[in-house]
Design a protein around this nucleic acid. Structure first.
Lengths: 151, 151
DNA sequence: TTTCATGCAAAGGTTTTGCACAGGC
DNA sequence: GCCTGTGCAAAACCTTTGCATGAAA
């Protein structure tokens, strides 16, 4: 885990930014919540627990900074706020994808890269140079699907 | 084209809403810009050209109304505002997908439904009942890819 | 007359920005 | 001392809501 912080520090330093204690706390919160998709305010509240004198603006600025260097990813599930997640990209730099339950809002991650052949077809058909893709699948998770059967 | 307006009118009436002149203008603007992905404000400005006394709130309310009845679709390309498009869904109710040029912002539509086998795999693996999906592919369009070669 | 639609202005929620101060090199 | 990072508050931005007016059935 320490190693990750070091890596990020290097990435930042390479662009003339420093790894400050506040930034480290933001990063830690994101690392401790790899499975979640935190909003800026959620990150803010979690950081505040450790460092009460942090400002919301700093959190926003830090998230933007991390996002610019692909340390974290910002995403949007259509609820009016951005959500952030520590980047666990594969070697191709692709995001992983999400199953979004329209009933309970649960978000399930798919780590597979299932779109390779699709990419090929797109590249051929549209003459489009793909750098990334994002797939959201909406539906009902098992629990909610079961609930629906017994109303 | 007239037929479309009639269809929408029916859909609305089925839910006890009326097709008013303002709503019709909003619909027309969306029909006339099927290929674009207009923001609420862009719709507002276009409607204003025809009916100067329209209010922004009405446009928002109308877009919300149409959206609820799947007459139009709202989507999000990550630029902080929702965009709207007249629904040209296929029979399965699936959205079509988008290629988003990260250089010029151009959005190219893919009307194909390329994800059928993927859906099967997801259903099997995650026990997830899919109702819809949304795929965004980021990259460079041909023009921008060419520009990049001669800097 | 009763109901729904609308314009305007205000409020709401999220994110960004301006500015002065603090802190490390 | 200089430069970056930071907190606070204000602003900006998109969207929603309240309310009184207006149109329609």
């Amino acid at each position: 885990m320490r190693g990750v912080i070091g890596e990020v520090e290097e990435k930042l330093r390479a662009h003339e930014y420093k790894m400050t204690p506040k930034r480290e706390h933001v990063l830690c919160v994101l690392l401790e919540n790899k499975d979640k998709h935190l909003s800026a305010e959620e990150v803010y509240n979690l950081v505040k627990k450790k460092v009460p004198d942090v400002g919301l603006a700093t959190v926003y600025r830090t998230l933007e900074l991390f996002s610019n260097f692909d340390i974290i990813q910002s995403m949007d599930f259509g609820d009016g706020r951005k959500r952030y997640e520590f980047s666990t990209e594969d070697k191709d730099g692709h995001r992983h994808h999400h199953l979004i339950c329209v009933k309970c809002g649960k978000i399930i991650e798919m780590n597979e890269d299932l779109l390779e052949d699709l990419e090929e077809r797109v590249t051929d058909t549209y003459d489009f140079t793909i750098t990334d893709h994002e797939l959201k699948i909406f539906g009902k998770c098992r629990e909610c699907a079961l609930k629906m059967k017994k109303p």
